[in-house]
C-alpha cells in the first residue's frame, strides 16, 4: 500500500515537472492559450477565421494556441470568470447586435468585457431571391412593400442575419413612412432552413451568404433551387479588397453589382446602409494591460509580415486589423449607428 502511494506521488511529481519545465516562451501569456469562440460550430466562419489567427499567434508568440467552439453564452461566461489571460474570446458583430436586439445571454460588451483587436471581415452576408422571383432587385422589393404587398424575409432572428432586414425596414420607414410593416420576418435557424423557406414558397427574400449560396445562383432558372443575389451588405471598399476571382465562378466584378452604391438601402436618407461582419477579440475586463499590449504588438507584426492576409483572402476573408484601442472606439461607433436604426423601428 505504502509503496503504491509513494509510486503515485513520484509519478505525479514527474508529470508536474514536465509540465512546468516546458514554459519558456518570452511572453506573459501562459504556455497554453485558449481562444473560445461565440459559435458552437467548427465548420463555420468564426472557427475558420479564428483558426487562421490562432495559428499565426502560436508561431509568433511561441506558445500553444487552441480554439474551442463553446458557443456565445459559455464563451462570455468563461471570459467573465478568467482574468489571467489564459482564455480570450473571438467573436463578431453579434457580440453587440445580440445585446441591441435584446437577446438573452448577451450583455453590453463595451461594459461587460474589454474589446480587443479586430482581425478580419467576412464580406459574404447576402440577401437572395428565387431566380424566377418577380422582383429584380432591392428597390423593387421595397417598392412592392410600399404598395402594400407583404414581402416575407427569411432570417435568423436577433443578430447579424437580422440586421440587413432591419436596415431595409428602416429604409422603407424613411422613404415610405408607415409602410414598413409590410416587410415581414420569417424566423428560421440555419442556412438550410432559410433556403427551405424559399423552396416552400414561404419567403420572398432570404438572408444567406456568398459562400453558401453562390452555387445556387448558378443553377438554371427552371431548377426549383435556383436563386439570385440582390444585395450584399458589405461595404463597396470591402468587396474591392477581395481576390479578383471572387467566390466559385462569381468574380469580384460580379459581386460588386450587388453592393452599395449599386444597391441603395438608405440608412438616414442621405447615405446608404452597409454592414461588414467583422471579427474581433474580447477580453476579461480586468485582464492585464501588458497582455493586451502584447497581443496588439504580436498582431501588428503578423499583419506587417503580410502572410496572413493571403491566407485570409484565400478563404474569402478580408484582412481588417485594428489594435485594441482603435478597435474599441470603432465598434462603439458602429454599434451606436445600428442602435439608432433599431430604436427607430420600435
Amino acid at each position: 500500500m505504502k509503496k503504491t502511494m509513494i509510486g503515485i506521488a513520484l509519478a505525479t511529481c514527474g508529470i508536474f515537472g514536465l509540465a512546468s519545465a516546458t514554459a519558456s516562451a518570452d511572453t506573459s501569456f501562459p504556455n497554453n492559450l485558449r481562444i473560445v469562440i461565440g459559435s458552437k460550430s467548427t465548420g463555420g466562419d468564426t472557427y475558420q477565421n479564428t483558426a487562421i489567427v490562432a495559428e499565426a499567434l502560436a508561431r509568433k508568440l511561441g506558445i500553444n494556441v487552441k480554439v474551442d467552439a463553446v458557443g456565445g453564452s459559455t464563451a462570455f461566461n468563461t471570459i467573465s470568470r478568467v482574468s489571467n489571460g489564459s482564455v480570450i474570446m473571438m467573436f463578431h458583430d453579434q457580440a453587440y447586435l445580440g445585446y441591441l436586439y435584446g437577446q438573452k445571454g448577451y450583455e453590453n460588451p463595451f461594459e461587460a468585457y474589454r474589446i480587443g483587436p479586430s482581425v478580419a471581415i467576412n464580406p459574404g452576408n447576402a440577401y437572395l431571391v428565387s431566380k424566377n422571383s418577380p422582383y429584380k432587385n432591392v428597390e423593387e422589393l421595397m417598392t412592392a412593400c410600399a404598395g402594400g404587398t407583404d414581402i416575407r424575409v427569411a432570417i435568423q432572428p436577433g443578430g447579424v442575419s437580422e440586421i440587413g432586414y432591419s436596415a431595409m425596414k428602416n429604409a422603407i420607414r424613411i422613404q415610405h413612412p408607415g409602410r414598413e410593416g409590410c416587410l415581414v420576418a420569417v424566423n428560421r435557424g440555419s442556412q438550410s432552413d432559410k433556403n427551405q423557406a424559399m423552396f416552400d414558397g414561404l419567403a420572398d427574400l432570404i438572408n444567406g451568404s456568398v459562400q453558401a449560396n453562390e452555387q445556387y445562383t448558378r443553377l438554371p432558372a427552371d431548377d426549383q433551387k435556383a436563386m439570385r443575389f440582390v444585395w450584399l451588405t458589405a461595404g463597396n471598399a470591402t468587396i474591392q479588397q477581395a481576390n479578383p476571382e471572387g467566390m466559385g465562378e462569381t468574380t469580384r466584378e460580379m459581386l460588386l453589382q450587388y453592393v452599395d452604391p449599386n444597391v441603395s438601402v438608405t440608412q438616414d436618407g442621405s447615405r446608404n446602409f452597409t454592414f461588414d461582419k467583422e471579427f474581433f477579440f474580447l477580453f476579461n475586463k480586468e485582464m492585464d494591460q501588458k497582455l493586451v499590449d502584447e497581443l496588439d504588438q504580436a498582431l501588428t507584426e503578423i499583419f506587417a509580415e503580410g502572410q496572413i492576409q493571403q491566407t485570409q483572402k484565400r478563404s474569402f476573408f478580408i484582412p481588417d486589423f485594428r489594435p485594441s484601442a482603435e478597435s474599441e472606439a470603432y465598434f462603439r461607433d458602429k454599434a451606436a449607428q445600428y442602435e439608432v436604426i433599431l430604436k427607430s423601428l420600435q
Partner: peptide, 13 residues
Amino acid sequence: GTYSVEHGGNGDT
C-alpha cells in the same frame, strides 16, 4: 434552456 435562435426560435429561456 433557450428556444435557440439557431433553430429559428426567439432565443428566450
